[in-house]
Design a protein around this nucleic acid. Structure first.
Lengths: 191, 191
DNA sequence: CCCCAGTGAGACATTGTCGTCTCACTCGGG
DNA sequence: CCCGAGTGAGACGACAATGTCTCACTGGGG
């Protein structure tokens, strides 16, 4: 019983700490363990009780980001309906994770060693969405699905930063990102 | 005379060191001064003779990136001809700076204090290009020029990383970035 | 030939962060 | 009421990176 209670309590705290860490690291990627602890409203010792070290915390954050983005992917139902609409749904659904994604996206540029396997799974699903759109004639064939996937991540990150820096209004974020990815900057004649 | 010779020699070395540093920091943003020195083929002491410290080096790198991107902007002649073509020229011309730009783009997310004034100048020129395109009816009005500018930087960085990670062929980089920014992923009916 | 500006290697102290530890304190359940 | 799990504050040593310094060495110009 105490074991269950312990596990449950831990999980809740752990998750809250993780979210606070995500919020801070999104703004300041080099924040120290002490800053992270303060941001989470706990002591540095307690932070170390939850996560063995900085690496473990970042890895846990990666797991959280992967899980949340996967949930966004599930909610967006990428296999249903028009592919462009599915992409739009995905971008809208990933709004809460945008900050973490931006952080992890740059973090991954740094550690060339062992990329988390979860990313491959997500990449595959996102790429499958773009490939479906290409096969259905919705998306261009001269932009590879791999590039569109990368661009999706990149634009989500860019959007998050643009909002954070005040260059884009928060309410416009989803539209700016999805419209640019799907429609591009050029004026559309038809439709 | 010796003063001239000194200045000239220094400038050349300094520039070469800076470019080596840029090449390394693009791949590994947290490289130590020692690694940077080794990458430049010089000793750590000599590196410190050129740049007072890490900050000074990064700031010099920022100056280099700004200068190079400004040269790319000059070469692209953003005031001439079709705005979309001008954007295409700009992206093509900025290919050599893409790595540095990607590094500086993420670096700037970190230091909220005093953004280098040069960026404002460049931002203004790029934004003016997008705004011209909007006024001429080439670009959409529902995507702000500020966002398009930010997206340009972001996509250049994303493209550089995608090439670095082997997800996009180097020869496709310029086309992938400019086509996505200008045309978007959706299939074009007209044209 | 000689000189010296510039260099590389390395020693050294300093700093900031990390990971671990101890020690009170608190608060909720038995 | 008492007890102990969990916590925050803080001390401590380890460690990596930084910035400064010295000391030979080299090679090109006078």
């Amino acid at each position: 019983m105490s074991h269950w209670g312990y596990r449950c309590l831990m999980s809740i705290d752990r998750d809250q700490v993780l979210r606070a860490a995500a919020a801070l690291l999104t703004r300041k990627a080099t924040a120290s363990m002490d800053e992270i602890a303060r941001a989470a409203g706990i002591g540095r010792a307690t932070l170390h009780r939850h996560f063995a070290g900085r690496d473990a915390l970042v890895r846990a954050l990666e797991e959280l980001g992967i899980a949340e983005f996967e949930r966004a992917l599930d909610r967006a139902h990428p296999e249903e309906g028009d592919a462009a609409e599915a992409v739009r749904r995905l971008i809208a659904a990933s709004e809460p994770v945008a900050g973490i994604l931006a952080f992890l996206f740059t973090e991954n540029q740094l550690y060339e060693d062992g990329v988390n396997e979860g990313w491959n799974r997500l990449d595959a699903r996102v790429q499958a969405l773009f490939r479906r759109g290409q096969e259905e004639g919705t998306f261009r064939l001269d932009l590879s699905a791999a590039w569109l996937t990368e661009a999706l991540y990149g634009l989500i990150g860019t959007g998050a930063w643009a909002v954070h820096d005040g260059r884009v209004a928060a309410k416009d974020r989803t539209r700016m990102v999805s419209e640019l990815l799907l429609g591009g900057a050029r004026r559309r004649m038809e439709r």
